[in-house]
Design a binder for these strands. Structure first.
Lengths: 329, 329
DNA sequence: TTGTATGCGTTATCAC
DNA sequence: GTGATAACGCATACAA
């Protein structure tokens, strides 16, 4: 049995306005009346209908989050960050897996808009033009995490600098033949920025950049595995590989281990992200630690600020990363 | 600028009912009229307000999913399964992290109910009594994944049998000193059922059950690591450890590896779940494969069946698991 | 085939 | 302090 505000009003012998007032304790209600109402609510097990409420007050206390794939190690941590602060501010989150597929992104965007989410969080390194237009056109606040685009609010780290740091570290360790396994070539972050950092660092160190040491990966374990296999079968194989994501790095380690190559003595490997498993595999993986949870938490915090009309001192949050040296390098 | 059904009605020179009809293409509308309406919709960029719609038709096309923690390796995969079929049936999902905390579970339950979700999916091995009462009292269909309780619909695997299989496998491999690292003692699945399977298999094989070979774990890496350390420092250490979750198993492997113990020659390790990383660590982990994605997908499918009043031939779905033999055993 | 009118469960504005 | 009542944006029964 489901009761509505009318039912409790009748039961308490008051008007629905009074019930509404005690439910939201908006305006003063005589204690005695309040008590009556509370009792009626209790007895009926009344729960306000948030949908009706939303229709009236024009917000839903829900936000949508679009990520490529929750089953990809990187995202659960940031989603957790998002959800934790969302929960603090009494928002619920719609989780949407886009697979970085343009059609799905647009479809999700549309239903999120129809469902009147108060805000959206978007992850997915590349933002298709069509989607970007929608972002601009709609009046729902959107914050980007892990990417940056136009004047949309975003929270990121300095990917280029982080890559340089890794390569410099490797150089300092005495490596000269340093390979890289990147993301997709068209990916502005994992495919481009991180590779650029790598190239720049090499150049600055006066190491000639060699095409054969750059291989394009596909984010997952397998592509790291295969990329490393390819690199290790070169006539003059690298002594170090910088892998642009941890999952691929773990694949690369696997390839080396299978070949009987010892890590880090014969081959150093450094990843990127610091997913949970990076510290748990054996040997443990040196990597660039992205503050994933914080990225999510802060991204959501930024969103709440926008939603509350608080002043945003900084629309472009750039978080600190750190290099975590472990056994693999 | 946001337009509503009235705006497009005015613009198209028809009534709102006609607009509604073409939007939902419910009843026949003269092609010419339809065209006019469509044009107006197009020009205004009209999007129906799903909240208003929900209020009227009394469903929201959204479901809630409560899980302990999305950043725990096991859940992303099942959530992905849920979301994929939810998406197929045009549902959106509210993601809720409960940390298996009773208060959070109840709080989430309440807001999900207020937000009028059409259904709920619950994970979390133990169902507090208070929550269970709410499950019974409410008229929102709920399906359990990974747990079973009362007459609620559920999708699980046979945990007891799986445990027996593991232990029998280990025995067949020649092991006699077989240890187990379980979940929390009060956890009906990981703490109790899986341990019971272990005990039964030992008994049936005529191996005396030894208290010191049973240690209670806490699901995460660290507790597996510490549990194994404890076991390996026994005067008469085990030659095989059955670890009731993969993440703990990877921790256990780490402990062994650090001690210079070779796996599987000196120590066999078998996990449970077959999380993504199980096949990626080195040495790779033998484990019981729970069909996580399917559990999610089928759970959601069951829910849609209930929501569509399709007949449920089976309220208690028990899925097949499989034993995956890898390098660690 | 189309339009009018009512109600979904709230909140909020106005009287009292 | 409290109670009518008008929105909120839509779907639908009924009338035309």
């Amino acid at each position: 049995m489901k009761f509505n505000i009318k039912d409790v009003a009748r039961k308490a012998g008051v008007s629905i306005s009074t019930v509404s007032r005690v439910v939201n304790d908006s305006k003063a209600v005589r204690p005695k009346t309040k008590e009556k109402v509370l009792k009626a609510i209790e007895e009926l097990g009344y729960k306000p209908n948030a949908i009706a409420r939303s229709l009236k007050i024009k917000n839903t206390k829900t936000i949508g989050i679009m990520i490529p794939d929750i089953s990809n190690q990187f995202f659960p941590e940031v989603v957790r960050g998002v959800e934790d602060v969302a929960n603090m501010y009494e928002y619920n989150i719609f989780l949407c897996n886009t697979d970085m597929d343009k059609e799905k992104e647009i479809q999700y965007f549309n239903v999120l808009e129809e469902k009147q989410v108060d805000g959206m969080i978007f992850m997915g390194n590349i933002i298709p033009e069509e989607l970007e237009k929608k972002f601009q056109a709609c009046d729902i606040p959107i914050v980007l995490i892990g990417t940056d685009y136009g004047d949309l609010p975003s929270v990121t780290i300095n990917n280029g600098q982080a890559s340089k740091d890794v390569v410099n570290y490797l150089i300092k360790k005495g490596h000269e033949r340093i390979a890289i396994i990147t993301g997709k070539a068209y990916d502005p972050i994992v495919g481009i920025t991180r590779r650029e950092g790598y190239v720049e660092a090499l150049e600055k160190a006066g190491i000639v950049y060699s095409e054969e040491l750059v291989v394009e990966g596909g984010y997952r374990f397998k592509s790291g595995y295969e990329g490393a296999k390819k690199l290790l079968s070169l006539n003059n194989p690298p002594t170090a590989i910088f892998v642009a994501s941890d999952e691929m790095a773990i694949g690369a380690m696997r390839a080396a281990l299978e070949k009987g190559i010892t890590i880090p003595d014969e081959l150093a490997i450094v990843g990127f992200d610091n997913i949970d498993m990076a510290g748990k595999v054996y040997p443990s993986l040196s990597t660039v630690a992205q503050p994933m949870y914080e990225m999510g938490a802060i991204g959501m915090r930024v969103l709440t600020k926008i939603l509350n009309d608080e002043t945003l001192e900084n629309r472009k949050v750039v978080l600190n990363y750190s290099f975590v040296e472990r056994e693999s390098s």
